[in-house]
């Protein structure tokens, strides 16, 4: 059995409380269908997201990480997402430099009314990860028997 057969990616999405989280909520209210692989973590602002959250997520078994916030200019705290933008432009490059596939980390601006964009983004990321297969990089070594066949330890 290949590793990717029947593989469902695990995605964590850090969503800003004021925009993306509301957008995801709206997607639900509108009965939009999006892949259930995504686990939404609500943060007060996308600027709250520490780059270490991303490393830690990969370490603990996530196959992909999303950071979503308000569009530049719309931040509830005025400037939070400008810092996010800089930080994750660098973080994205650092991850790639360290050998993580660029498809595993995504940052997106999704406003409170863009339910469809949330749905499409999650679908797109999920589809991309399904092709990439389970993430083995940065992954903590699994205990014997635990999660066997669902991804495996680091390379």
């Amino acid at each position: 059995m290949s590793l990717t057969e029947g593989f469902e990616p695990k995605i964590i999405a850090f969503c800003c409380n004021w925009c993306t989280y509301t957008g995801a909520d709206l997607a639900g209210l509108n009965r939009m269908k999006y892949p259930e692989n995504v686990h939404v973590a609500r943060v007060p602002c996308s600027g709250r997201v520490n780059p270490q959250f991303i490393l830690r997520a990969f370490q603990k078994g996530c196959d992909g990480v999303m950071v979503c916030g308000c569009h530049p200019g719309d931040c509830h705290y005025s400037t939070g997402n400008y810092f996010t933008r800089r930080r994750f432009m660098l973080m994205k490059r650092m991850l790639e430099y360290n050998g993580i596939d660029p498809g595993r980390f995504h940052a997106r601006w999704i406003s409170g009314s863009e339910a469809a964009k949330f749905r499409d983004t999650v679908a797109e990321v999920s589809e991309r990860l399904r092709k990439l297969g389970p993430n083995t990089k940065y992954r903590e070594a699994l205990r014997e028997g635990a999660d066997a066949g669902k991804g495996g330890a680091g390379i």
Binding site: P51, Q52, L55, R56, Q59, L90, M91, M94, L95, N98, Y138, R139, E140, A141, G154
Partner: peptide, 24 residues
């Protein structure tokens, strides 16, 4: 819980990248 204490490739690499990001 930010940084695992284990001496493993995973924890060591995460320390390395985080250190670089903190001071880079």
């Amino acid at each position: 819980g930010f940084q695992g204490k284990q001496h493993s490739r995973s924890d060591n690499q995460i320390f390395g990248v985080t250190r670089a990001f903190h001071v880079g």
